[in-house]
Design a protein around this nucleic acid. Sequence first.
DNA 1: TCTGGGGTCCTAGGACCC
DNA 2: TCTGGGGTCCTAGGACCC
Length: 380
Amino acid sequence: MDAFYASVEQADNSEYQGRPVIIGASPGHRGVVAACSYEARKFGVHSAMPISHAYSMCRDGIYLPVRMSRYQEVSRQIMAAFNDFTPDVIQISVDEAFLNMTGTEKLFGTPEETAHKIKARIKKDTNLNISVGIAHNKFLAKLASEYKKPDGLYIVQKGKEIEFIDTLKLGDLWGLGKKTLERLEKINITTPAKLRNKEQSELKDLLGSSSGEFLYKIVRGIDPGMYTGEIKNRSLSNEITFGEDTTDAEVLNLTLLELSYKVMFRVLEDNEKGRTVQLKLRYSDFTTITVRETHNSPINSAEELFSIANKLLNKKWKKSEAIRLIGLGLSSLENINTPGQIELFEDNYEQSKKVEQVALAIRKKGSKLTKASLLDRNKP
DNA sequence: TCTGGGGTCCTAGGACCC
DNA sequence: TCTGGGGTCCTAGGACCC
């Protein structure tokens, strides 16, 4: 999808059409741009930019919060449409998917004709533009989809892979980020062609075995194995950046309690369980640390998660250090029905677990049931 | 311009085991 | 007394992506 969040807002609100729309934090607050319309890009605004910077360049922009549930709704609509073209759809984010169109020529025509049909269908269903990339592997298709944005269509013909890659900048290659770019530049590798001159062993020595092999392959148009394995949840987390840095232990504790419930409820809703708890702290100077603790048996109540998180906080946090961000996550996730190690000791959280299950069931029916200590004290 | 939130995968070292 | 070879799991941090 092109400028997905911004395009959805423009499709939903006709008065936003043709205007610079910027989705993310609101100006004056901490945060960044999550997405912006092409009109906003003309001002120099782009995603991941601090919102304050965006505001300084684009005062008359329309600044909107992220409405993730709405974007997910539209996303489901789009994915459903894709499924009418092929059963082999791999969704890789809220606004991207790979469609394996092998063997559909008799149904839909040439690849180009098929692409036009898919674009027209999404336009009809959602009034949104999509960009399509066609190639013989996923990696090249992904690059091709970026090539002619917005409302793009590009086909990498068989035999023309290297030629195509050489029209790109090194940084356009998916998986090649800022740090790697810097390291490559130091040894005078500034283009895909120069990168192709390096032996695989040289790249492995420079960047590690995995990254070396990855770069060696992609610059030759060989798929590095994108999304070949099964896609499943490996971790789940929530985090929050405070409006102002804090040293207030009570604020940190209450936030951690809130995060514990958020994370635990999400895990339970996904029918999963996790054994590894991770606490994340970001200090005023932006240094970020994490602490993890893996248990033998899964954490299965928010109260238990909170008590572990609290212990980790006390272990790492020096009271004088102001905290900018606090985050909590669960990993080593697996299906809740996966048989685990038999509990040797009685679970201390049996009681709170039952209460939480009831609370979760009630919340699923639309209630805002929450812990008293998490109530907003400024509201009646 | 002061830097969100949610993820995945990889690396290097350590503890521990046979 | 100096010390092999193979393995698993865990931790902390880092690069990257949307």
